[in-house]
């Protein structure tokens, strides 16, 4: 598999074309965070509903490259049902993984594992991170 094929994995393309949990809901109980990257034009908003320390819903909207869009979709699917504590741990681990920093391989990143190919493309780390950073901000 070449570097590029490693980046554009089937699961990533599948999420890009069929994003899960896309579109925001009008509900004051959700926490919302938006990040724009002015240099590339990415614009992502993540919306999270936490009830009793559990993420009951997680949604996203925005536009950007396939990596940023797919990582938002994978994020939302993965996070629903997790406790806030668990979610933060997973998000930190994921962000370390895509940035090619040390990360704990024992923490299950589930489908988000497919973004490990981003490590070979330092210029794309931001693309894979933006939704996850926004998500963490919705938990603050």
């Amino acid at each position: 598999m070449t570097g590029l094929d490693n980046l554009y994995r089937e699961i990533i393309m599948e999420h890009y074309k069929n994003p899960r949990n896309k579109g925001l809901v009008e509900n004051q109980d959700y926490r919302l965070f938006r990040i724009k990257n002015p240099s590339c034009g990415d614009d992502i908003t993540i919306q999270t509903l936490v009830v009793d320390g559990i993420i009951k819903d997680c949604r996203h909207i925005g536009h950007g490259c396939s990596i940023s869009m797919a990582s938002a979709s994978v994020l939302t699917e993965l996070m629903i049902g997790k406790s806030v504590e668990e979610a933060e741990k997973i998000a930190d681990n994921y962000l370390n993984m895509v940035a090619n920093k040390e990360y704990d391989e024992n923490i299950d990143l589930e489908e988000a594992e497919v973004f490990s190919g981003v490590r070979q493309f330092p210029a794309r780390i931001k693309c894979a991170s933006i939704a996850w950073v926004a998500f963490k901000d919705t938990l603050k």
């Binding site: 570097g3 980046l7 034009g41 950007g64 490259c65 794309r124």
Partner: peptide, 20 residues
């Protein structure tokens, strides 16, 4: 999206710019 495309060019050692 231009940031997907630009990675392809970078791999081929063709320096372009993508973005706004």
């Amino acid at each position: 999206p231009s940031h997907d495309a630009i990675t392809f060019f970078a791999e081929k050692k063709v320096a372009l710019r993508a973005g706004q």
